[in-house]
Design a protein around this nucleic acid. Structure first.
Length: 233
DNA sequence: CTACCGATCCCCT
DNA sequence: GGGGATCGGTAGA
């Protein structure tokens, strides 16, 4: 897996589709399948957090490939990236959506915990409300967005810089068998589709429109379109 | 179905 | 002091 992450970031992003995201902690072991990602290149990418050079926040992006780059967004959510490229080159892949595979209940519990923690003040009714709302969600919707992936897998700033390719890591990547029991391949049933990245209107051309968002066609766990464009899915 | 809005806070140019 | 690699609720067509 780490070898696949050393090359160009768009190639690494495609390689991460279908890979497993694995969390092992007290809440419960969880496994999901990555179905949607976005590639962010180096300092030349006007949409990347590295566009102004190294800062405190983006430090992990400059590290070796296979590490996690976690950041907080909008004051309340977290997003998980997989660092790619050689050390010193700040490219990364944002994990935008994951299809739950095992331990759906643990993912729900993590979602509820994140939702409650994200709100100010102790409100007893909040936990009850979130429990009911999230309990009703379809499994395919639990991690269908970058902040939802982080919440479902209990990803926080503690995971920033963690090695996602170490077998002993509590948060890591895995590879799913590509050959099914009937002899077919998963690639054959899930072609990759490319489209523009989401939420990067602040970037200057051509970086605001480059088709570096990749997803597995037909997946039910893809992120929901907000306001604008959606194609091919 | 689409569109807008508020929440919330750390980071930075 | 401005704004964001988001989400969920609400209003209206």
């Amino acid at each position: 897996m780490r070898g696949l992450l050393e090359g160009p970031v768009d190639v690494a992003a495609r390689a991460l589709l279908g890979a497993l995201l694995i969390r092992t902690d007290a809440v419960g072991a969880r496994i999901g399948r990555i179905v949607e990602v976005e590639a962010y290149a180096g300092e030349e990418d006007a949409a990347s957090h590295a566009r102004f050079g190294p800062t405190r926040r983006n430090r992990a992006m400059y590290g070796p490939p296979g590490r996690a780059y976690v950041y907080r967004v909008y004051g309340m959510h977290h997003c998980l990236n997989v660092v790619t490229g050689p050390p010193g080159e700040p490219s990364a892949v944002l994990v935008r959506a994951v299809e739950p595979v095992t331990s759906i209940d643990a993912m729900r519990a993590a979602r509820i915990a994140a939702a409650v923690a994200g709100h100010r003040g102790a409100d007893p009714g909040r936990a009850v409300a979130e429990n009911g709302r999230i309990g009703r969600l379809a499994a395919s919707s639990l991690a269908s967005g970058p902040a939802l992936v982080a919440a479902s897998f209990s990803v926080g700033m503690d995971d920033n810089g963690a090695d996602l390719c170490a077998i002993a890591s509590p948060l890591r990547l895995g590879v799913e068998p590509t050959v099914r029991s009937d002899g077919g391949t998963r690639e054959a049933e899930c072609p990759i589709v490319a489209g523009p990245r989401v939420g990067v209107a602040y970037a200057t051309p051509p970086w605001d429109a480059v088709a570096w968002r990749f997803w597995l066609a037909g997946s039910e766990a893809l992120s929901r379109p907000r306001g604008a464009l959606r194609s091919g899915a």
